[in-house]
Design a protein around this nucleic acid. Structure first.
Lengths: 237, 237, 237, 237
DNA sequence: CATGAATGAGTGTTCATTCAT
DNA sequence: GATGAATGAACACTCATTCAT
């Protein structure tokens, strides 16, 4: 599958590193702008990111226009392309920021090989819910853009796969230490639990639900524990 | 008096019994087409639905064009509007067909008040996975379109809410018969389990996973059982 | 929330200070273009106005296409919408220019409270015929567009009503100074005379008539004088 | 200038009697339907004419659709073309009916060579106002269609020219009998008076005016008399 | 570096007219 | 003669992207 979102006006595409490369003067500037960023430039770039986020959140990816973004950012239309290749590009940058947050807030706890598994689980679930809720506006859009662009779609799938994989590892670790039910299939269970976690996280935003993050994390973790047959007092060495 | 010069493309939505009503010339034809449909007309309509499904599946909603749909269906461009108001309209018709299937294949088992709850659960979960898998192409698109159209978005939310509500009812029924853990919150648990179910269902399609529907249904049902503290031998009167 | 999928071509008119306000991307550009206009921009805009006039004159409003206009102007299709909301919008701009001319060339003489009424009348009638003849191509189209768009229709009616009203005032002023027949009804007579004036003005263009503007103005003024019973030597103080 | 309204789908035009000729099965039926009209056919045809009139009056010519007409008439879409060549064709038939009425109600009085000229004038003016008022809905549309179709435009011009010509003849006849001012130019005066008459007639409809037909006819005739210098007691032999 | 005018391919939708049934 | 499904040319309008100034 090839990205179809950026089809407009791409006249002479040149392949590099498996993707499209921009041409034109703004592109040349972008190439250098990574290294030499004045303070003002950084601020403009950030303004655009903030504006894009607001605009995407309000109108969705497809309906949002570059014009709206630059108007919100208070810069000229052409300046957008000084900092970002395309509408899709700025969206990917936005999503990348969330991924970093997840890595920082959640993954470290999932991976923690020591301490009380249940405590770690509760913390990571709680943080996950918090991060997703804080970025709910963008999360929804990932689904939208994934349907339109293969690179975003693949990134989304990869991210989910890694999440499942990390959770499956944890389960196997627990099993190997006799802390979890050894009869369950780690991958299948991880798939179910990750689906549950992210599904609930998103539903909390859009469903207008009365469940608090705190209660949700408690309940999810309880289900998680019973699904894995985790021993409550267990501690990893 | 209202300006009529700019009538082209101006959609004047009028609400009736909770839906949209068509306006314009083709609309007048459509209005009567429900009652008096030639065999040929029915065939053309079905061709368009099939073609739309294929096209949407391949290109996504946004990228798919009416032109592609009619080309696939082998009819003239204008014929599309003899049967459907718009691209969005045909999409909604497509989705409505799935909803009917779900109602038929799944809901009846969820609602079943008698028999072995676990057996009913396994059947309904299995059917749900099958239906979603069979319609995975469209399911993905619902997310995409929901981001662009409020009516689809609301339908999606309503559908999810009802699903959760049905499951919560089941849990409460089990609890009242002493078959399930009475300490869990029915709604929260139902939210988690429904999220898990639909999350897994979709992931099975897009994740290129090796888990079979059968194994997935088994595992999900097991988690479901343990989450609710369902007694394995239990039978509703 | 409102459906956003069908946004293409959906015109969402919002009333402000008695006019239409633009929406959409090009509209945002247009909004500011009044204040900050490059020389190049001004030229392009004028090119479009000129081209539109030629195209409308040759093909009529309905039959003229934006494509023809931009081809004549030598600009890209999209540029049209940088400067004008729609085909109707550019038409209204064109008509507004004539209205200004009429105001400048004719109304001032009608309103003149001093001097020889007959001289003022002759001048204003002569100028009116000249202005209408010079803009005959557009005047015809106003009738066409008025049948299709209420705002143009209302503007046309308002304009005529004001014209009649101005003439009726003149007649009353003459009557109050004893210069005109006091038995005639000012409004009815004004209606007749204005109808005559504008009717003749248009007929001179389309009727392929041999009457010169000069003779026409003389004759019309003579009829006007006799209809009002104006004293030939009369002078307003 | 060539008619541009009927441009759609005219594939193989054949010229006859200076116009376009229809092709296709409906056309063949039309060819014979003039001679062999069953009662039912006549009724259907009349229904279509009535429906077209209502539809045109409400939506204007351009905005009215054949679909609306047939829906109002309660016949099938295809049946329209059994009776009329095109949308334009039915419009011309409608206009022709008015022309006949004018001929019957007005022209005979204008042409009357005997009796009191002033009485004849008053009657013909009164009738003219009445006829135009009764057909005001269509009269407006003639202007609209004339801008789009040369045949209607030419018919309109011819009609006006004949009107002026008839009035000019009357004036000359009066002059030759010493009943009217011999110094005025008959054609120029006729042009002015006819413009006044038809201008007022239309304005009475659209201007939301309080002047009654009766008063209008009186005033117009008075102006007419003074413009021609008609002797009040004069009688043609 | 910023600007904003210019671009033009692309899209959904309309509707007069035809013609198989 | 009636029907109404099918047709397809035509059109207004959008907006991501480019590039001269």
């Amino acid at each position: 599958m090839v990205s179809r979102v950026q089809k407009q006006k791409v006249v002479t595409p040149e392949i590099t590193r498996g993707g499209w490369v921009a041409s034109g003067v703004a592109a040349e500037r972008r190439a250098t702008s990574d290294t030499s960023q004045t303070i003002k430039a950084k601020r403009t770039r950030q303004n655009l990111l903030d504006a894009a986020r607001l605009t995407f959140a309000e109108y969705g990816y497809t309906q949002a226009t570059v014009e709206q973004i630059v108007a919100t950012a208070g810069v000229a239309r052409g300046s957008f392309y000084t900092y970002f290749e395309s509408k899709l590009d700025i969206f990917r940058h936005l999503v990348a920021l969330i991924d970093k947050t997840i890595e920082r807030e959640v993954v470290s706890f999932e991976r923690r090989h020591s301490g009380n598994p249940i405590d770690n689980l509760l913390i990571s679930n709680r943080n996950y819910l918090a991060v997703v809720r804080a970025n709910a506006d963008l999360y929804r859009l990932v689904e939208e853009v994934a349907a339109q662009d293969s690179s975003v779609n693949e990134a989304r799938i990869r991210s989910r796969r890694e999440h499942i994989s990390r959770v499956a590892s944890s389960i196997r670790r627990w099993q190997s230490h006799g802390l979890a039910d050894s009869t369950i299939d780690a991958t299948t269970t991880a798939t179910a639990l990750v689906s549950m976690l992210s599904g609930v996280a998103q539903w909390l935003q859009i469903g207008d639900v009365t469940i608090s993050d705190h209660d949700a994390a408690e309940s999810l973790t309880k289900i998680w524990i019973s699904a894995c047959g985790l021993q409550s007092g267990a501690v990893l060495p």
